[in-house]
Design a protein around this nucleic acid. Sequence first.
DNA 1: TAACCGTGGCC
DNA 2: TGGCCAAGGTT
Length: 359
Amino acid sequence: MKEQQIQQFNHDLLDWFHRKGRRLPWRKTDNPYYIWISEVMLQQTQVNTVIPYYNQFIKKFPTPEALADAPEQEVLKSWEGLGYYSRARNLQKGVREMVATYNSELPKNKSDLLSLTGIGPYTASALMSMAYHEPEPAIDGNLMRVLSRIFLIDDDIAKQKTRKKFEKLASDLIVQTEPASFNQALMDLGAMVCRPKIADCSQCPISSHCRAYEEGVQLEYPVKSGKAKPRMLHYAVLLLLDEQGRFLVEQRPDSGLLAGMWQFPMLSLDEYEDEQQQQAYSRERFQCSVEPPEAAFSYTHHFSHLIWKLTLRIGRTPSQMKLRKRQCWATMNELKRFPFPVSHQKVIRWIEKNRPLHT
DNA sequence: TAACCGTGGCC
DNA sequence: TGGCCAAGGTT
């Protein structure tokens, strides 16, 4: 685009944004720490999902020190249900680094921001523009979708290096005097008008600048390579009760899927294929046999790259059994203090509904 | 580079 | 109904 076209493009974009842009909780603050929290929560997560988590989180951890000093379990509990839990652990780690290294203040330059755990290229640029009003384009999925349509760019946005191409392009476009509004405008446009499956071009303030609209190929863009089909894994979820009706629960490892979250013990049915093997395992490991509840309970849980097929089994385990590390007995009330992934919250809900203590 | 890492909402 | 998608970072 020529300079004058850029001026018109930005005028049309920002005029729309100031009239129709979303009023969001994290746009009311100038506290870089709060903006940081919002940016992490918004990674791969929709605005409406984030809002209640954000409000609750900043209330519970109002300052960097409050978050830095909190037990990780409390942070995960506040994140419970939001998904991608390593974001919470990395956010706390990053905040601790900020408190220790930068005197509790978020750095004002991009390379220092990038040095903090959990801050990548997008979040660093978002913070530079939104918290410090520096002209850094924040290259996210919305921006790439909108600009790929405007400029008919057919590079695969799933590839890392494509991001750099958009970075250069957006650097030439960004409104120097109002970079935060520029970035937020493209995000709002991408979320509200120029959506992946629905491009509502009649409502678009910049359709007159859009080459995809001109050619009627909006939905062909952006080009994005497909994801692999998720693997399927089968487990028995073991509801193990002691004489007092407490439940055996355990904390998952500190890395990998659902790191640091709690769960009921699981038995891999892909590993232990037949009934005999499964009973041998539960006797050896939990000193009891396990069987399906009277009304069998099986369900499916989808992750981004995995599918769990789960089926509930119940057993009576002696409370004096030697527990492994990261395992403990808990009453229903005590259970609720632990962060559980949704896949296991489904079991907790089942217990409350079916009351297996009476069996 | 590409796989890993969650969840809920939408059509 | 289920496949697709969302303000990405880490390894």
